[in-house]
């Protein structure tokens, strides 16, 4: 039986939403899903090498940011980059940086982004992947 396909349009560069994406990726990995992630605008900021580990912005309930970040530590929640890496090790996950998004954040080459990124692509690839997937999420 062919693996189910999950496509994620990952727009957010905030650690709360990236953490949620990491949890969903864990679920996908447990079920051997094939995953295509398209790193769009603000997410491309978080995927820049100099930002990935230092980015502690949250998108929602911003007045409770410190409590949120402390709870992630208390619950031994892996950093989102770790969660993404684990999913990549356990199932077929391809991570594409949107070329436009990269340029917005002054990233022209794949090497400007963390090693999790597999290539730089255009939006056409996202449309094709979304058409072919069983689940398509915008985060």
């Amino acid at each position: 039986m062919a693996n189910k396909k999950l496509t994620i349009a990952l727009f957010s560069g905030s650690v709360d939403k990236l953490t949620a994406a990491g949890v969903i990726l864990g679920g996908a990995a447990a079920e051997d899903m094939d995953v295509e992630i398209f790193v769009l605008l603000q997410a491309a900021f978080a995927f820049k090498k100099e930002n990935a580990m230092t980015n502690d912005r949250v998108a929602e309930i911003t007045d409770k940011k410190d409590d949120f970040l402390a709870s992630l530590k208390r619950l031994n929640t892996p950093h989102w980059t770790e969660a993404f890496k684990t999913a990549k090790e356990m199932t077929n996950v391809n991570i594409h940086i949107c070329g436009f998004a990269g340029k917005v954040w002054h990233g022209e080459k794949l090497d400007d982004f963390i090693d999790l990124a597999d290539d730089i692509c255009g939006i056409g690839e996202y449309m094709t992947a979304a058409e072919e997937s069983d689940i398509n999420l915008f985060i």
């Binding site: 447990a30 619950l75 031994n76």
Partner: peptide, 14 residues
């Protein structure tokens, strides 16, 4: 027991 969701599921998968 030291991990929260989806840690146990991933540990089971491994």
């Amino acid at each position: 027991r030291g991990t929260s969701c989806p840690g146990p599921l991933l540990a089971a998968k491994k």
